[in-house]
Structure formats: structure tokens, C-alpha cells
Amino acid sequence: MLVLARKIGESFIIADEIEVTVLKIEGSEVKIGISAPPHVKIYRTEIYRRIVEENLKASNASVEILKEVRVIDKDRRDFGKTS
């Protein structure tokens, strides 16, 4: 792990396109700003872990459960069927 010391207003760059800036320090809390292109997804760690867990659960769904899923969008009702 890389450990950096930064003061308010100072920043660092990740991969030529992401800039992280220290905005404010209040007691034990540090507020940071992140400038990144729209295609870069940024998540808090606890949220990212929940997304991964949900994706794993979804990937383990049985065929029987998936057959019970109802199609809500009528335009997708015939998706995957061949005439």
C-alpha cells in the first residue's frame, strides 16, 4: 500500500486521468474530491463489497428461479425466441 501525506488543497494523480484532492480535514474525518472521467466507476468500499456479493448471488441463481422471472417490458417479451 502506498501511503501519502497531503495537506488541504494538495492532490495526487492516479493513472494519468484521476485526480484526488484533500478538501477538508475535520478531526478524524478527511473530505476528498475525486476528478475522473465518466467511464471510471468510483464506489465506497462497503458499497462495492455489497455489489460484488449481490452479483455473486445473482450468478448462482438456478434455472428454475430464472424461469419464474416475469417480463415486465412487453417489448422484451420475445427476446431470445426465434421465429
Results as ranks from 00 to 15, higher is better:
Val22Thr: 06
Ala61Ile: 04
Val30Trp: 11
Val71Trp: 12
Thr21Lys: 08
Lys81Pro: 00
Ile14Trp: 11
Glu64Cys: 10
Arg50Gly: 01
Lys24Tyr: 11
Val20Ser: 01
Thr45Pro: 00
Glu53Gly: 10
Lys7Ala: 13
Lys57Arg: 13
Glu10Leu: 03
Glu68Ile: 09
Ile25Phe: 06
Arg50Gln: 07
Ile51Gln: 05
Ile18Leu: 02
Lys67Glu: 07
Tyr48Ile: 01
Ala36Ile: 02
Tyr43Glu: 04
Leu4Glu: 04
Lys67Asp: 01
His39Ser: 04
Leu2Gln: 10
Glu19Ser: 08
Glu46Ala: 09
Ile32His: 04
Ile34Ser: 00
Glu53Thr: 09
Val30Gln: 04
Ile8Gln: 09
Thr21Arg: 00
Glu54Gly: 14
Leu56Asp: 07
Ile14Arg: 03
Glu26Gln: 11
Val63Tyr: 05
Asn55Lys: 12
Ser35Tyr: 13
Asp78Ala: 09
Lys7Thr: 14
Ile72Gln: 04
Leu2Trp: 13
Ala58Arg: 11
Ser28Val: 15
Arg76Val: 13
Ser59Thr: 12
Ile14Pro: 01
Val22Tyr: 04
Lys57Gln: 13
Asn55Pro: 05
Arg50Thr: 01
Val52Ile: 08
Asn55Phe: 04
Ile25Gln: 02
Arg6Val: 08
Glu53Ser: 10
Glu54Pro: 06
Ile18Asp: 01
Ile51Thr: 04
Ile14Ser: 03
Ala58Lys: 15
His39Gln: 13
Lys31Gln: 05
Met1Ser: 08
Glu46Asp: 05
Val30Cys: 03
Ile8Glu: 05
Glu46Lys: 13
Lys7Met: 12
Tyr43Ile: 08
Ile65Gly: 14
Ser28Arg: 15
Glu19Met: 14
Glu64Asp: 10
Ala36Cys: 02
Arg50Met: 02
Phe12His: 01
Lys57Ile: 05
Asn55Asp: 10
Ile42Glu: 02
Tyr43Met: 03
Leu4Tyr: 02
Arg77Tyr: 14
Asp78Glu: 14
Glu29Tyr: 14
Val40Arg: 08
Met1Leu: 13
Tyr43Phe: 14
Glu64Ser: 08
Ala61Ser: 11
Met1Tyr: 11
Ile14Gln: 05
Arg49Ser: 07
Lys67Pro: 02
Val3Ala: 14
Ala61Met: 11
Tyr43Trp: 07
Ser62Lys: 10
Phe12Ile: 01
Lys67Thr: 06
Ile25His: 10
Ala5Ser: 11
Glu10Phe: 06
Glu17Met: 15
Asn55Gln: 09
Ile72Phe: 01
Glu54Tyr: 14
Pro38Met: 13
Pro38Gly: 15
Val69Cys: 05
Leu56Trp: 13
Arg49Glu: 09
Asn60Glu: 15
Ile8Cys: 04
Asp73Pro: 00
Asp16Gln: 07
Ile47Gln: 07
Val40Thr: 07
Ser28His: 15
Ser59Val: 06
Arg76Ile: 13
Ser11His: 11
Glu26Met: 08
Thr45Ile: 10
Ser28Cys: 07
Val22Asp: 02
Ile47Trp: 10
Ser62Asp: 02
Pro37Ser: 01
Glu17Lys: 15
Val71Gly: 03
Val71Ile: 13
Val20Met: 01
Arg6Glu: 02
Glu19Thr: 12
Ile65Thr: 14
Glu26Ile: 15
Val20Pro: 00
Arg77Ala: 07
Ile51Arg: 03
Ile13Ser: 04
Thr45Cys: 03
Asp16Ser: 12
Pro38Asp: 13
Leu23Thr: 08
Phe12Trp: 06
Ile14Thr: 05
Arg70Ala: 11
Asp75His: 15
Lys41Ile: 09
Arg50Pro: 00
Asp16Lys: 14
Lys81Gly: 03
Arg50Lys: 12
